[in-house]
Nucleic acid binder design. Structure first.
Lengths: 167, 167
DNA sequence: TATTGTTATACTCTATAACTATA
DNA sequence: TATAGTTATAGAGTATAACAATA
């Protein structure tokens, strides 16, 4: 990194100082934290549902019946996180388990009618939240955003494939 | 929200099921978590620096001298988070404080030469990380991404202005 | 009275390790 | 031996409340 050979490039990002507020990882993190907390407040205050619990309901809303392992894979959560969130949902009778006779180590999980009722209430709220959030964004910009987020995800998955090796 | 008046809209997102993997808050959260953890591994393993500590160094790299309160405002961290991270950096002699004679409640914080040396090593690594991450993204898409992230942030700040009222 | 900063404490989410019960 | 899931425990990161020192 000696100055003679390195400092000639006149690109604006070349400097010894990194601007935090323009640094993509920082921006993503701040935004995602704000978004998650705001959304969690929406369903948290009303239903006492945590983020992992919401993700489990959302997954079961899509797939009806799933094992804990499959839920973890789909919603990108550690098996211990899933285990505890499922236990909490079970205790509140929002989720129930049905044994798998073919493999008694696992069980099929599904929402109870009560769970489905809460799910049916949360979904429009979540969708409204996302819509409010994006309401000023041009549709083509939103499409670009989603495409780029996908590309970034793919890039990360390609390099560090160690999110949760045993789940 | 009665079905007669609401369900006629044939937009594709209208359904009782919400697709988690296409839901913006979820996507942002997963991506940001992966990005943060990957980056934190880069400077964490090498220098034993946490995310809040890195943010403080980054802020002091931009502004040379700042109070804890100002650092918190700039890097969007709670004052308790800043206080603890500064204490850790002080103990390792990466940051030092200079009293403000005009107001003895606060102190000006700055990196020591040792802190500056670590900062100077981290910055290129961080920049390289961000560049690797974005290397497949078209420049105009990246520009759109940054613009849209800014719009989303502005939208969130406009609604829920309760991030850290007393900092 | 209000503000800067610290500390005690707690909560959420995540993760490792040790365990059980099955396979 | 390996896998699904649970539990104990610990680690980040964040937050509230109580406090000391100063304004």
């Amino acid at each position: 990194m000696d100055s003679l050979s390195e400092k000639r490039n006149p690109v604006e990002t070349e400097s010894d100082v990194l601007e935090l507020e323009g640094f993509l990882p920082y921006r993503l993190n701040v935004l995602a934290t704000l978004v998650s907390q705001s959304l969690a407040r929406v369903y948290g205050e009303r239903f006492g549902i945590s983020i992992p619990e919401w993700r489990i309901l959302a997954t079961l809303g899509q797939f009806s019946e799933m094992t804990a392992r499959e839920i973890g894979l789909h919603s990108r959560m550690h098996k211990t996180t899933v285990s505890r969130a499922v236990a909490a949902l079970e205790k509140r009778h929002l989720v129930a388990r049905r044994p798998n006779r073919q493999d008694m180590r696992e069980a099929f999980l599904a929402m109870t009618p009560r769970g489905q009722a809460i799910y049916a209430e949360i979904v429009p709220m979540a969708r409204q939240f996302a819509q409010d959030l994006a309401q000023d964004i041009r549709p083509d910009d939103l499409a670009t955003l989603n495409r780029v987020l996908g590309q970034l995800m793919a890039r990360l998955k390609a390099s560090g494939e160690d999110h949760d090796p045993d789940a």
